[in-house]
Computed example of a mutant assay.
Amino acid sequence: MTRFRPCIDLHAGSVKQIVGGTLSTDNAGLKTNFTSDDPAAYFAELYKKNGLTGAHVIMLGPGNDAAAREALVAWPNGLQVGGGIKDSNAKDWIDAGAEAVIITSFLFPSGSFSLERLQSVLSVLGGDTSKLVIDLSCRRVGDGWRVAMDKWQTITEFQISKENIAMLEPYCSEFLIHAADAEGLQAGIDEKLVTYLAEICTIPVTYAGGGRNIQDLELVERLSNGKVDLTIGSALDIFGGRGVTFDECCKWNKHRDDAGR
């Protein structure tokens, strides 16, 4: 059954909701939907209190390590951490209290996928796939999607395909996939991508991008037959949004948890 998956997006040390496609190295065209006065730890504690597992903390650029670590202190072994993760620091984040680390750009040196790099990250984690989430955030190219890296500005040659998903699944516990073209716009999900992910993925997958209300949770559940989870960010009231309340999302998960017992 589809569940709401919360997030903590960090930019310049603050919790923010950003229009994903506007991120860049110099942030010249950055569009921010919301900047919180509360620290990352506040949201970690909120998610812990409400039993919202599988939350991802994403560090968008430099200057976010301290905030991410504060969140991990607030909920040790309850959060996934991504953004700049590589083989040299993956275990450090697990030791700091991350439930799992999320990797993206490190796997694509010069825009090409490196199985050797993926294996190196898993190796420093002792081969424990439960500690590794692969982020395949992507942009639409033609009739399909290709992984986008470096703040979603560089489109790689790596396609979201049944063959590539099957190749990656033995190395991780789940996938996190932002539809970068829809991220932060609150204009609805990429229905074709959600449907396709449900068809080709056999391990858990969380989709993010465009979620705007409780009806989108219903839509993702229907399109994916409950196989894909949904992250809602900018539309959520705790992030200044007006599309859906945090309480509604908590109740959504509780109803599904109760039904699964």
Results as ranks from 00 to 15, higher is better:
residue 98 A to T: 00
residue 99 E to W: 01
residue 180 A to H: 08
residue 207 Y to I: 15
residue 172 C to S: 10
residue 16 K to H: 02
residue 124 V to G: 02
residue 250 C to R: 14
residue 56 H to G: 01
residue 6 P to W: 12
residue 247 D to A: 13
residue 259 A to Q: 15
residue 12 A to Y: 08
residue 87 D to P: 09
residue 246 F to D: 04
residue 205 V to I: 07
residue 152 W to S: 02
residue 174 E to N: 00
residue 218 E to H: 00
residue 158 F to E: 09
residue 14 S to H: 13
residue 124 V to Y: 03
residue 41 A to V: 00
residue 144 G to C: 12
residue 200 I to W: 01
residue 18 I to H: 04
residue 226 G to W: 00
residue 225 N to H: 13
residue 34 F to H: 13
residue 89 N to R: 15
residue 48 K to P: 01
residue 215 Q to C: 02
residue 76 P to I: 07
residue 258 D to R: 14
residue 62 P to L: 06
residue 13 G to V: 15
residue 260 G to Y: 04
residue 90 A to S: 14
residue 8 I to H: 08
residue 116 E to M: 04
residue 34 F to G: 01
residue 42 Y to F: 11
residue 80 Q to N: 06
residue 89 N to G: 12
residue 52 L to D: 01
residue 57 V to P: 08
residue 63 G to S: 06
residue 255 H to C: 08
residue 261 R to Y: 13
residue 227 K to Y: 03
residue 18 I to S: 07
residue 228 V to N: 10
residue 152 W to N: 04
residue 246 F to M: 01
residue 22 T to N: 11
residue 18 I to N: 11
residue 14 S to C: 13
residue 40 A to H: 04
residue 171 Y to E: 01
residue 110 S to H: 14
residue 133 V to C: 01
residue 105 S to Q: 15
residue 138 C to Q: 02
residue 6 P to S: 13
residue 187 A to V: 04
residue 161 S to F: 03
residue 191 E to M: 06
residue 144 G to I: 06
residue 25 T to D: 09
residue 122 L to G: 05
residue 91 K to C: 01
residue 105 S to L: 06
residue 9 D to N: 14
residue 192 K to L: 08
residue 168 L to Q: 04
residue 9 D to C: 13
residue 104 T to N: 14
residue 154 T to N: 12
residue 231 T to Q: 00
residue 22 T to F: 09
residue 224 S to Y: 10
residue 197 L to V: 06
residue 40 A to G: 11
residue 53 T to F: 09
residue 259 A to N: 12
residue 44 A to Y: 03
residue 183 E to D: 13
residue 165 I to Y: 00
residue 126 G to Y: 00
residue 57 V to R: 00
residue 128 D to Q: 11
residue 89 N to W: 12
residue 260 G to I: 00
residue 51 G to S: 05
residue 93 W to R: 02
residue 17 Q to A: 11
residue 223 L to Y: 07
residue 112 S to T: 04
residue 244 V to D: 10
residue 32 T to N: 13
residue 184 G to V: 08
residue 153 Q to K: 12
residue 211 G to N: 14
residue 230 L to Q: 04
residue 177 I to G: 10
residue 2 T to E: 09
residue 63 G to M: 11
residue 164 N to D: 01
residue 135 D to T: 07
residue 240 G to T: 13
residue 217 L to H: 08
residue 199 E to Y: 15
residue 192 K to M: 12
residue 109 P to W: 05
residue 33 N to W: 12
residue 48 K to E: 11
residue 216 D to E: 02
residue 119 Q to C: 08
residue 181 D to E: 15
residue 202 T to S: 14
residue 207 Y to K: 11
residue 24 S to P: 13
residue 72 L to F: 06
residue 14 S to T: 11
residue 159 Q to N: 04
residue 62 P to T: 07
residue 87 D to Q: 06
residue 235 A to E: 10
residue 63 G to C: 02
residue 158 F to K: 09
residue 156 T to E: 03
residue 230 L to P: 06
residue 77 N to G: 05
residue 110 S to G: 10
residue 260 G to D: 15
residue 72 L to A: 09
residue 75 W to M: 03
residue 40 A to R: 01
residue 86 K to G: 05
residue 9 D to L: 05
residue 143 D to M: 14
residue 222 R to W: 05
residue 111 G to R: 09
residue 126 G to P: 01
residue 150 D to M: 10
residue 161 S to C: 11
residue 74 A to D: 05
residue 256 R to H: 07
residue 251 K to P: 00
residue 7 C to T: 09
residue 66 A to V: 10
residue 13 G to C: 15
residue 218 E to S: 05
residue 66 A to S: 11
residue 156 T to D: 06
residue 220 V to Y: 07
